[in-house]
Amino acid sequence: MSAVQEALPAVRGSRDATVRRFALTDAIFHAVTRAAAILVLVLLGGVAISLFAGSWQALSTFGFSFVTSESWNPVTEKFGALAPIYGTIITSAIAILIAVPLGIGIAIFLTELCPRPLRRPIGMAVELLAGIPSIIYGIWGLFVLAPFLQTTVQPFIISVFHGIPGLNSLFAGPPYGIGLLTSAMILAIMVLPFITSITKDVFDTVPPVLKESAYGIGCTTWEVTRRVVIPYTRIGIMGGVMLGLGRALGETMAVTFVIGNAHRISTSLFAPATTISATIANEFTEAVGDLYTSSLVALGLILFVITFLILAIARYMLMRIDARTGA
């Protein structure tokens, strides 16, 4: 049903009535979409309020030291969130560092290089990575990836970087197989389909005429991608990265299996660590004391704040880029 067909009776019948009807339906549609947008706000508001209420006891007991203390002791009921905050930021940052170039690379491959008949199967294969339950990533990471890293990759890296100051502390300690780096790798695999699918979809929306004119003046495929496609789709790619980052920051089940859940801050990427969501998932179901439970909820609140800060920084960076390119 095309717009023309719907507009036709307007010409034939009473014009005013039709215009009024259109205006009414439009107003309704407008109001409905607006209500949906506000509902999103209300939902988050509700989540935030329940988080605030739940974490109040912990925050009022520990005050600011909750975010500066590394200690996490359920026995003496002394709780500090520094170690999970550190683990969350480091694992997500490494995951994004790995996944963004990979995702964009795959998207370029799919839109520019891949033979047509293979595009759909490969694209779908990557999307499939998003369909694997996160607990399976966890079990796979624990039973397959961790032993592999433990017996081959980690001893090798430790011996290579052994004598180099700085790097040797980054890759120090006994190779347990599980730890910060393993979690970051699992997270990278998990967010890859989010970044790839979105990037591929936005690449497909670039008007062919833009690309053709660039090719027309003799640009190489890479130059067209770098100078035309990526700038045109920048915001869309950013959306994909945000989806991925959001998943990485909040991912629970997979990380709990491979992070080692140690409330310690270690410079070594091989050391066991913990993240906010892993701590909540690991300990919430067994926590009995009110203060203990409240501290776990407060961790959730902190994750909200971290996400908020990261998003604000990302938006600021986007604005800077826009200002520089004059877009």
Binding site: R247, L303, L311
Partner: peptide, 15 residues
Amino acid sequence: VRFINDILLSAPSII
């Protein structure tokens, strides 16, 4: 809403 929605994206599912 965009901002809030991005935060909601990363809310741990247990929350």
